[in-house]
Simulated scan of single mutants.
Amino acid sequence: MSQPPESLAALPESAQRVADLLAGIGHDRPVVMLPATGKTSAEAAAGLGCSVAEIAKSIIFRRVKDDAPVLVIASGSNRVDEAKVAARVGPLGKADAKFVREKTGYAIGGVCPIGHAVAPVMLLDADLFRYESVWAAAGHPHAVFNFTPQQLQAMTGAPVVDVAQAAQ
């Protein structure tokens, strides 16, 4: 894998908030800024020189019964099977941009696995554990950070489950 872009001295406010959260839990890897957007898994992977599967994408759903945010952190190469997620957490609805911003504190394309405005129900894609390390959004569409899947599980306490849609 090629070297990721260098960290910038001044991070955008939302990315700095993530950097501070990571420092607070003793995470030893910096938040880095991509030269181009990382809103999609493919864009982030291209900017980092890694495979799309090594991107830990954050997908937000709205749980119907209580309007709770449901965060699925999935391998970038996987399509999330909503039926598998609903079987674990209850019926799901779509989360629009306003819901995502209100519940997470982040804009779509920058949703970080940690530091949410409202604690989400979380699930981690078991396929992430195939990789030595993965990258996730760090609060901003251009900001990312690196971690092992085991660190992600320790940070979030989320169960590791099969959320991937079967290949067709």
Score class of each variant (00 low, 15 high):
S2Q: 07
S2V: 05
P5W: 01
A9C: 10
L11V: 03
P12E: 08
P12I: 02
E13S: 12
S14N: 11
S14C: 11
Q16M: 12
R17I: 03
A19C: 05
A19Q: 07
A19K: 03
D20S: 12
D20L: 15
L21S: 09
L22G: 02
A23G: 06
I25E: 15
I25N: 11
H27C: 11
H27R: 12
D28I: 02
R29W: 12
R29M: 13
P30W: 02
P30T: 05
M33P: 05
M33N: 09
L34K: 00
A36K: 10
T37I: 12
G38S: 06
G38Y: 00
T40I: 10
T40W: 02
S41Y: 02
A42E: 10
A42V: 10
A45P: 13
A45K: 14
A46L: 12
G47H: 04
C50R: 12
C50H: 04
V52N: 08
A53L: 04
E54S: 13
I55F: 01
K57P: 04
S58V: 05
I59M: 09
I59H: 02
R63W: 15
V64D: 13
K65T: 07
K65P: 03
D67E: 05
D67Y: 09
V70I: 08
L71D: 00
V72E: 02
V72S: 03
I73F: 00
I73H: 00
A74T: 14
A74D: 06
N78W: 08
N78P: 13
N78Y: 07
R79Y: 09
R79T: 09
R79S: 12
R79V: 09
D81H: 03
E82N: 13
K84V: 08
A87V: 04
R88M: 11
V89W: 04
G90L: 12
G90E: 08
P91L: 10
L92K: 03
G93A: 05
A95Q: 04
A95L: 09
D96H: 07
F99I: 08
R101V: 14
R101P: 02
G105C: 11
Y106F: 15
I108H: 00
I108L: 08
G109K: 00
G109P: 04
G110A: 06
V111G: 05
V111T: 13
V111C: 07
C112L: 01
C112S: 06
P113T: 04
I114Q: 09
H116N: 10
H116L: 12
A117R: 13
V118R: 15
V118T: 07
A119K: 15
P120K: 04
P120H: 11
V121I: 07
L123V: 06
D127C: 08
L128A: 01
L128Q: 01
F129V: 05
Y131N: 02
V134I: 15
W135N: 00
A136Y: 00
A137H: 04
A138H: 00
A138W: 00
H140C: 01
P141S: 04
P141C: 05
A143L: 11
A143R: 05
V144N: 10
F145R: 04
P149W: 11
Q150V: 14
Q150E: 07
L152I: 03
L152H: 01
M155H: 15
M155N: 01
P159Q: 10
P159T: 13
P159K: 15
D162M: 09
D162A: 12
Q165L: 11
A166G: 00
A166D: 13
A167R: 15
A167S: 11
Q168R: 06
Q168P: 10
